[in-house]
């Protein structure tokens, strides 16, 4: 199965003259269905960046399945704010003849734009072989929060192979490049995951941290023996965590966001619509 979905936003005048975000493009293709939604629990505050639009992805009951090729394009226009979430986890399943399933996500965030991308976990079923490729281009004053979570196997199951390939640039300059292989090869060794079933990260790129005179740049913080917040060059921070299950992974990543402080601290109560 092949599918391509797309969402684009722009900044438009809102009530009282305050700019709000308008969805300028929304295209779904089964099984990738996009629709506008309300604020969810755990969303950071993005009010200082503008009035956001919220879109959620529903990707069907199961899949991608080996052989599937999914593509998601996200264009955040100048000065607009998009919160992109997902309805449910993706269950990665093997296809016939061991074919690879791929999800390719292409993101651009224009000048003054903000993207908060909070997908649900990828759950790797036994025998799956999935490539998740994410390419992000940020303008020099764009902001980004991006979460990735992988759970190896459903309850009591040995997970298949998942590769996460991430490239993030700011103004054309590399910000974070990571190819993470889980479930096979190096993924099983003591340097990558070593028996941890839930692996995840949150990348936060905040242009306020870029400035030389920035008051509160992120600092290294150990969250546990297997989780850490680290500052990256170019005004960004990576929260990286390895846990035994998805619930503790989510908690750990949230504690990392809390360590970064406002506005990136997750908010328990959804703001009014």
């Amino acid at each position: 199965m092949r599918a391509c979905a797309r969402v684009a936003t722009e900044s438009a005048p809102g009530p009282g003259g305050r700019p709000r975000t308008r969805i300028s493009g929304l295209r779904s293709q089964a099984p990738l269905m996009l629709f506008t939604t309300r604020a969810k629990e755990g969303e950071p505050s993005v009010a200082h960046r503008g009035v956001p639009a919220r879109v959620s992805v529903a990707a069907g009951a199961a899949g991608p399945i080996g052989g599937d090729e999914l593509r998601l394009e996200v264009e955040v226009g100048p000065g607009s704010v998009l919160v992109l979430s997902e309805v449910s986890p993706s269950l990665l399943l093997p296809g016939r003849e061991g074919r690879v399933s791929t999800t390719r996500v292409r993101i651009s965030v224009a000048t003054g734009g903000t993207l908060v991308w909070l997908p649900e976990p990828l759950v790797a079923a036994r025998g799956c072989d999935h490539l998740n490729e994410v390419r992000v281009d940020l303008a020099d004053d764009a902001a980004l929060l991006m979460r990735e979570e992988v759970v190896l196997g459903r309850h009591g199951e040995t997970g298949g192979r998942v590769r996460l390939s991430t490239r993030v640039r700011r103004s054309g300059r590399a910000l974070l490049c990571q190819d993470l292989e889980l479930g096979t090869g190096a993924g099983r060794t003591p340097v990558v995951a070593h028996g941890h079933r839930a692996v995840g990260s949150v990348l936060v790129a905040d242009p306020l941290w870029c400035a030389q005179e920035a008051r509160s740049r992120p600092r290294t913080r150990l969250l546990s023996g297997d989780a850490v917040v680290t500052p990256l060059p170019q005004g960004a921070a990576l929260i990286s965590a390895l846990c035994q299950d998805n619930a503790s992974l989510r908690d750990t990543l949230r504690s990392g966001l809390a360590a970064l402080g406002p506005p990136w601290t997750p908010r328990p109560v959804p703001p009014p619509p």
Partner: peptide, 22 residues
């Protein structure tokens, strides 16, 4: 493109490097 060069991640090594530094 240098951007496409290998980027094989080792998250546990990253964590232990930070723990070791303390």
């Amino acid at each position: 493109s240098p951007h496409d060069m290998p980027a094989a991640a080792a998250p546990l090594l990253d964590v232990v490097a930070e723990v070791h530094a303390t």
